[in-house]
Design a protein around this nucleic acid. Structure first.
Length: 320
DNA sequence: TAATACAGGAGCAAG
DNA sequence: CTTGCTCCTGTATTA
């Protein structure tokens, strides 16, 4: 069983998978034999790259709703190549060139100019809002490694089996209805979610019980809402504070200018942009300072500040 | 080897 | 508006 690969002309300075798929935006990409894979929209997507090409392949289950795992055979997706290309283009935000953006940020920010060359190809993904919401609820007081473990556990325990390939079984990310009906706070605790179990479960319940609310979450991508409206909307979910709201808004709802201030951003703001952030109370980040720091970076980098932040964030993460 | 410190956000209560 | 504590787990450091 071989994958059928397709190519997109795209150099590594527009996308660099090895860093991008590990840098704390998405948590379910896995690299095997130099191929990255994850599930998107009930299909498995494979990605790899060469000097100047991004290559992709895809598999989906031959049956729509799969309960009898053993019968399922992998099915090649030659006929729906255009759909997969569209899916991948949207997910990777390929309509936006980051080479231009890097130049723009470098011209406005000497520090960015100095350090960004070693971190080329870090773009912003456009992920599913629901999955992003749950993933970042899990991210509180947490690190990339454990968040990944938790997200994979959600799929394995509560998602649907899609297909097996090269010894790996792939599962979809559970929908709100699946999570609310198949999981419980207790079962999530057993999986190691800790105090986040309640937040994840309650958020799933809210969205499972109220279809309009679920539709509204997705509709927040629309430019008819302001960044502030999106931020406020997201705060209604349990386990979502200012930082998580900004992550979800930036990474799944097109709010390109939002800069989520977490401990890493706080550190590099003080270390590299310092002057006005060092003097203040050292330990914790007050909400006033949170807002202040966000504004500082938008003023510096402009309307794609959130994307620029991801480059420096990746630099600060010590990727294993 | 076992206890301890620390890292990482949200939410709540009190100052 | 700010401060301080709790929630839970994994890793690093210390006795």
């Amino acid at each position: 069983m071989n994958l059928v690969w397709h190519s997109i002309n795209l150099p590594p300075n527009e996308i660099y998978l090895d860093k991008l798929l590990r840098c704390g935006q998405a948590f379910r990409w896995v690299k095997n034999n130099n191929i990255w894979s994850s599930t998107l929209n009930n299909r498995v997507v494979f990605l790899r790259q060469t000097e100047d090409q991004l290559e992709y392949a895809s598999l989906t289950s031959s049956q729509k709703n799969s309960s009898n795992i053993k019968k399922l055979q992998p099915k090649l997706e030659e006929d729906t190549q255009d759909d997969v290309l569209g899916l991948i283009s949207n997910y990777l935000n390929l309509q936006i060139s980051i080479v231009q953006l890097y130049k723009d940020w470098a011209s406005k920010d000497a520090h960015f100019a100095k350090v960004s060359a070693a971190f080329a190809g870090i773009r912003m993904l456009q992920q599913d809002p629901w999955e992003t919401l749950i993933s970042f609820i899990c991210s509180s007081n947490n690190n990339v490694k454990r968040i990944s473990k938790m997200c994979h556990a959600l799929c394995l325990e509560y998602g649907d089996f899609i297909v097996e390939y090269a010894g790996t079984k792939y599962y979809s990310f559970p929908t709100p209805v699946q999570l609310a009906s198949r999981a419980s706070e207790a079962s999530l605790r057993e999986l190691g979610f800790g105090y986040r179990a309640r937040y994840v479960y309650e958020t799933a319940q809210m969205l499972a019980d109220d279809k309009a609310l679920f539709m509204q979450l997705h509709s927040m991508r629309s430019s008819s809402f302001t960044d502030e409206q999106v931020h406020e909307f997201l705060l209604q979910f349990k386990g979502v504070g200012p930082k998580v709201a900004d992550c979800v808004a930036l990474m799944s709802l097109n709010r390109h200018s939002l800069v989520p201030i977490d401990t890493h951003v706080l550190q590099f703001a003080r270390r590299d942009y310092s002057y006005k952030f060092r003097g203040r109370s050292n330990a914790t980040l007050s909400s006033a300072m949170y807002v202040d720091m966000k504004r500082f970076f938008v003023d510096k980098w402009g309307s794609y500040a959130g994307w620029a932040h991801s480059v420096l964030f990746t630099r600060d993460l010590k990727l294993e």
